[in-house]
């Protein structure tokens, strides 16, 4: 605020005094203050979680450093699995690869499964949202299907696809499609009649209505669904990979358990958590960008 006031004053004042350089002086004074402010804000957001994490690590260390402890303490995890932590992308061949690479293979499956789920969910959801009878008929079925846990689909999909790769992708799809579908349908149903009237008066055809009115109007709902969906698909991939094998992060955990590498499991859990968090924030950020304007109304 002070900077703008100064700038407003300077052009008029020199006209009388005929020297402008003197008036520019107070400007830099306000800059460090705003710098300090942003630094302070960052600190206010970063320091509390760091303190909590440090405390948790200390408690964990104390609890697990007794001789008969069944789980490794943080210090033990570091000595056991340091390479996994600081070198995520090593590749020693024969499936001995870093966790970063494993996460990438899992993410690739999620991308395919969730991508299909997003496409199908939005399209089918839009159709269902348009028709009150389709909504009434299908909604109870969806509400039941969406509560089926991801792993419960796995035997069926293994039987159907007879291959672990497509089965895992199918499990991701079937887990994450419901929230996308249901949210899209609700969003489409909640499109204000005014927007529909605008479309009617302009005689927009179905195709134009879908892309120009329906999708943008329902976008906040769609992104809520996508955000829930991406979280669920990340849940599903780990579970599915534990059973289907391969190179993913889920299988890594199962493999580590079978060879009693508990420290590796703990590192993998941290990886999964962080990646899931990033996925969630990524979809939320895309949603915030796409729906700017819409949600503000």
């Amino acid at each position: 605020m002070t900077a703008t006031v100064q700038r407003l004053v300077t052009p008029t004042a020199p006209a009388a005094t005929a020297n402008a350089a003197v008036f520019a002086l107070p400007k830099p004074a306000s800059r460090p203050r705003s710098w300090q402010k942003t630094l302070g804000q960052i600190a206010a957001n970063v320091i509390p979680p760091l303190v909590v994490i440090a405390l948790a690590l200390i408690i964990w260390e104390i609890l697990c450093s007794t001789p008969g402890a069944s789980l490794p303490a943080p210090s033990r995890v570091w000595t056991d699995a340091a390479e996994l932590i600081y070198s995520p992308f090593f590749d020693y061949g024969q499936g001995d690869i870093g966790l970063g690479l494993r996460v990438l293979t899992s993410l690739q499956r999620v991308a395919i499964g969730f991508g299909i789920a997003a496409l199908v969910g939005v399209t089918v959801g839009a159709v269902i949202g348009q028709s009150i009878w389709a909504m009434r008929g299908l909604d109870p079925i969806f509400q039941i299907l969406r509560t089926v846990p991801p792993l419960a689909w796995l035997p069926l999909s293994l039987a159907a696809f007879m291959d672990s790769g497509p089965s895992a992708i199918f499990v991701i799809f079937i887990t994450s499609v419901w929230p996308v579908l249901i949210n899209t349908a609700v969003g489409v149903r909640n499109i204000p009649q005014d927007y529909r009237n605008v479309a009617l008066i302009l005689r927009l055809n179905q195709f134009e209505f879908f892309f120009k009115i329906m999708i943008p109007a329902a976008a906040p709902y769609i992104f809520t669904g996508l955000r829930i969906g991406v979280g669920l698909s990340w849940l599903a991939i780990v579970a599915a990979e534990m059973l289907t094998g391969g190179v993913g992060i889920g299988f890594f955990i199962w493999d580590a358990w079978n060879s009693s590498r508990l420290s590796d499991i703990i590192v993998a859990l941290a990886y999964i958590g962080v990646v899931g968090f990033i996925l969630d924030r990524l979809v939320a950020a895309i949603g915030a960008f796409v729906t700017r304007g819409t949600s503000a109304n």
């Binding site: 005014d194 927007y195 009237n197 943008p216 976008a219 700017r292 819409t294 109304n297």
Partner: peptide, 14 residues
Amino acid sequence: ERAVVFQNHSLLPW
């Protein structure tokens, strides 16, 4: 050919 001006403007916010 029969354009309507709506009471609440009905502009598309996006």
